[in-house]
Simulated scan of single mutants.
Amino acid sequence: MEKFFVFRLAHFLNSSLSNMYAAVVIITLVGISVTGLKTVILIKKNHYDQVLRFVIFTTCDIIHLFLNSMAGQELFNGSEEELKIIYNCNWIALSTKSRKLIRFSMMRTLKPCALAAGGFYVMNMENFRSVVQTSMSYLTVLSSAY
């Protein structure tokens, strides 16, 4: 019963918070690049007293995206774990009605739950890495132009 509540909650989060997660990802991507560029500019101008402020802001941006991505990864992992639990249960000892319920449960868990950001980004650790990597690439391009 608890697991089905989790599936309903994940569906609710995807339907209601998808656009917000998309905004968080885009703002974080741009924020890391811009504050990183500002940090590079301040270092080149020897204003080391202001560098710490931008480094902390960039770090907080990365941590915020990391925590959102970690929640999505936990949901995905839990969904895959449920499939394994259902698959490994002693279904032969169950009644016919329970076997049918197990079959429906397995069909539901074949498509793992995931938090999506705007329909184009799945909140997980792999995509977190790619967003941070893309931000650093933009930072490198922008700082080489400066």
Rank of each mutant, 00 (worst) to 15 (best):
S33L: 10
F57D: 11
A23R: 07
H64K: 08
V132R: 03
N127P: 02
R53T: 14
F12K: 02
G31L: 05
E2H: 10
K111S: 11
F104W: 13
L110M: 10
Y87E: 09
N88F: 09
I56L: 09
L110Q: 15
R108V: 01
Y21R: 03
V55D: 04
F76C: 10
E126M: 11
F57A: 15
F5G: 12
Q50E: 13
I92P: 07
N90Y: 14
G118Y: 02
W91C: 00
V132I: 08
E80R: 06
S95F: 07
Y138P: 07
V131N: 05
N127C: 04
M107P: 00
N90E: 15
R108M: 05
E2A: 10
R8P: 01
N90W: 11
L29M: 06
L29P: 02
V30S: 07
G119S: 02
S144G: 09
M106P: 00
M123F: 01
S95Q: 05
I63P: 03
R108T: 04
T39R: 07
V51R: 02
N68Y: 09
L139V: 06
V40N: 14
L101N: 09
L17A: 00
S144Y: 05
M123N: 00
L42Y: 08
I41T: 12
V131T: 10
H11I: 06
V24I: 14
K38I: 14
L17F: 01
S79A: 01
T140G: 10
I27T: 14
C89D: 12
Y121D: 04
N68E: 05
D61I: 08
Y121R: 03
E126C: 09
F54V: 02
F57C: 10
Y121F: 12
S98H: 14
A22W: 01
S135I: 06
K45V: 08
S95K: 02
V30I: 15
Q73N: 08
I41R: 13
S33K: 09
V6M: 03
L37R: 09
L94V: 03
N77G: 08
Q50P: 07
E2M: 11
K3D: 12
F120Q: 08
I102R: 06
S135L: 05
S15D: 08
L83G: 03
L115R: 01
F4C: 11
E2P: 12
V132S: 03
I102Y: 10
E126A: 11
M107A: 02
A93D: 15
G36E: 08
T35A: 15
H47F: 11
V122R: 14
F104L: 06
E74F: 13
L142N: 08
S15Q: 09
F128P: 03
K45H: 14
I62W: 02
A114G: 12
K38D: 12
Y138M: 05
L75A: 02
S105L: 13
K38E: 13
V25R: 00
R53P: 09
E80Q: 11
T28R: 04
H47R: 13
G119N: 05
L101Q: 14
H64V: 07
T58N: 07
T39Y: 08
S144R: 11
L83N: 04
A71E: 13
Y138L: 09
A116K: 15
T134M: 13
R99H: 04
E82T: 11
F54A: 05
L115N: 01
L65E: 00
T109A: 06
T35Q: 14
K84Q: 13
L142R: 10
M136R: 13
K84H: 11
I85N: 15
